[in-house]
């Protein structure tokens, strides 16, 4: 109740183990009696498969650890959420006018589809909603691969531009539109060069689009307090004592340039604590392998070289670094168990 909610974000290029690591951290912390919420904002929703979630996107599920991993975890549990932008929007509009709004406005309906244009903004709103609820000790975020996570980070700026720039431009014209709903909006906008631009744009988009678009903006503008409150989450994300980004990579990936760029992008936007997380290390297995001929030595050298390449990057980046070994089972829940033991 008194201590502040912590945030852990697992980010990195594709296929490095973000979802599995994020889940293992959730379980680990839940076993320490913390109230944990695990959210995935990756549209591929691998979390569903990993923890056997029913088709329940957008709603919080209470997960008993022993339901994921047989006879493990006692009575400990954590909460999990597969983010769905439509449900986030429902939360914002507080349900009562929700269905009518979507019926009347196709643009909004489409914007709030999973994978829709407002995906990252809604993900941000969802995160802030749970953070400010003060219900959890720790919120863990599993993110989409690489560049798409950067879109999420850019939401800070987007929210700002959204309300200070875009809306301002568009709302200059709104009073005149609202007065005479039946007359074409283009006839009303005469004092600016925008009427000519809109006229041409209309050729490309069709007339209905512009009206619906402006309608969409006014609906979103009515909820601006929620967006503005969400933007205050930035201060918590920038606080090293509250937020940690686990920048994840794995030995089998050779996307080291992307990793460095991702780190650069993240660092220019967020000043949270950053931990380089190196997954799928095979160093123990490699060490105990004694090759019996040249071919085997060649292969061993190749794998060793991979391990060392990443370790060198770790030095270069000068970040706190943690290593996790690769679990060789075909079953993801065995991966979970071995990762939990390594935290």
């Amino acid at each position: 109740m008194n201590s502040t909610t912590q945030i852990n974000i697992f980010a990195g290029t594709g296929g490095v183990g973000k979802t599995t690591l994020a889940t293992s951290k959730a379980i680990f912390e839940a076993q320490q009696n913390k109230k944990v919420l695990l959210i995935t904002i990756d549209p591929s929703l691998r979390l569903k498969q990993l923890i056997n979630l029913e088709n329940n996107e957008g709603y919080i599920n209470k997960i008993l650890i022993k339901d994921i991993i047989n006879s493990y975890g006692g009575d400990h549990e954590f909460s999990a959420l597969c983010f769905n932008p439509l449900n986030t929007f429902k939360k914002i509009t507080k349900n009562h006018d929700f269905d009518k709004i979507l019926q009347d406005n196709r643009i909004l309906k489409i914007l709030t589809q999973p994978f829709g244009a407002m995906n990252e903004i809604m993900a941000y709103i969802e995160l802030s909603y749970h953070y400010f609820s003060n219900e959890y000790d720790l919120i863990i975020l599993d993110t989409p691969p690489g560049k798409n996570f950067v879109d999420f980070i850019h939401v800070f700026e987007k929210l700002n531009t959204f309300f200070n720039f875009y809306f301002f431009e568009i709302f200059k014209y709104l009073p005149s539109i609202k007065k005479n709903k039946n007359t074409s909006i283009f006839k009303k906008i005469v004092n600016s060069g925008i009427d000519k631009a809109l006229h041409y744009l209309e050729k490309v988009t069709g007339p209905v689009f512009i009206e619906e678009f402006i309608n969409t903006i006014s609906i979103l503008y009515e909820k601006k307090d929620i967006f503005l409150k969400a933007s205050t989450l930035k201060d918590y994300l920038n606080n090293e004592k509250i937020s940690t980004i686990f920048l994840t990579t794995s030995i089998d990936q050779i996307k080291l340039e992307e990793l460095k760029e991702l780190l650069k992008e993240i660092s220019s936007y967020i000043s949270s604590k950053k931990v380089l997380t190196i997954n799928k290390s095979l160093s123990e297995q490699l060490e105990s392998w004694a090759p019996t001929n040249n071919e085997e030595q060649y292969i061993k050298d190749h794998f060793l070289f991979k391990e060392n390449k990443i370790k060198n990057i770790a030095h270069e980046l000068n970040l706190e670094t943690v290593y996790f070994s690769e679990n060789l089972s075909v079953h993801p829940y065995d991966h979970l168990i071995s990762l939990i033991n390594e935290w």
Binding site: P43, R106, F115, P145, K203, T205, G206, V208
Partner: peptide, 27 residues
């Protein structure tokens, strides 16, 4: 192309925009 999740999103876009932009050059 983008990874699976976002690839599906890209493939869904033309239909989604068709619903909004029923007329005009883009439609």
């Amino acid at each position: 192309s983008p990874a699976s999740g976002h690839f599906i999103s890209v493939l869904s876009i033309p239909n989604q925009f068709k619903k909004i932009l029923k007329l005009g050059a883009i439609a």
